[in-house]
Amino acid sequence: MSALTENGEHRGDRDGEGVPPGGGLTTGEVARRLGVAPTTVRTWDRRYGLGPDGHTGGRHRRWTAGDVARLERMCALTATGLPPAEAARLARGEEPPAVAPAGETAAGARRPPSRSRAGSGLSLGDVRQECKGVARAALRLDAAALDRLLLDAVTEHGLVAAWTEVIVPTLQAVGRKWQTSGERYVEVEHFLSWHVSGVLRRTTPDTVADRPGSTVVLACVPGENHTLALEVLSAALAQRGVPVRMFGGALPVESLVAAVRRTGPAAVGLWAQSRTTASRPLAQHVAGLEWGVRGARRKPVVLTLGPGWTGQAVAGAVRPTGLAGAVAVLESVAAR
Rank of each mutant, 00 (worst) to 15 (best):
N225A: 12
R211F: 09
E231F: 00
L256K: 02
A173W: 07
Q284P: 00
T207E: 12
V242Y: 03
Q179D: 14
V217A: 02
A209M: 12
Q273K: 11
V216W: 01
A235Y: 07
W271M: 04
E224K: 11
C220Q: 02
V188A: 11
A229G: 13
P169I: 07
C220N: 06
V244I: 08
V188Q: 12
A267G: 06
S234D: 04
R280A: 05
Y185L: 14
T204L: 15
E254P: 00
G292H: 04
S279M: 02
V186P: 10
L282G: 01
L200P: 10
V257G: 00
D210Y: 11
F191D: 03
S197G: 15
A258K: 06
R261I: 02
G175I: 09
L237H: 05
M246Q: 09
G249A: 13
L200G: 15
G175N: 12
V208M: 13
P243H: 04
L270C: 05
R201T: 13
S255D: 03
V168Q: 10
E183D: 15
S181Q: 13
L228F: 08
P169S: 11
A238K: 15
N225K: 00
R275I: 01
E254A: 14
P212L: 07
G182V: 12
A266R: 01
A229V: 10
L289N: 03
C220I: 07
A278N: 01
T180C: 12
A250H: 05
T170S: 13
E254V: 10
D206F: 06
N225F: 09
T170A: 10
L233E: 06
T207Q: 13
L230M: 11
E189H: 14
P212C: 08
V244F: 05
T276G: 03
Q284F: 00
S181N: 13
R280M: 00
A258D: 06
P281G: 04
E183V: 13
A238E: 06
L200N: 13
S214Q: 12
Q172M: 12
W178V: 11
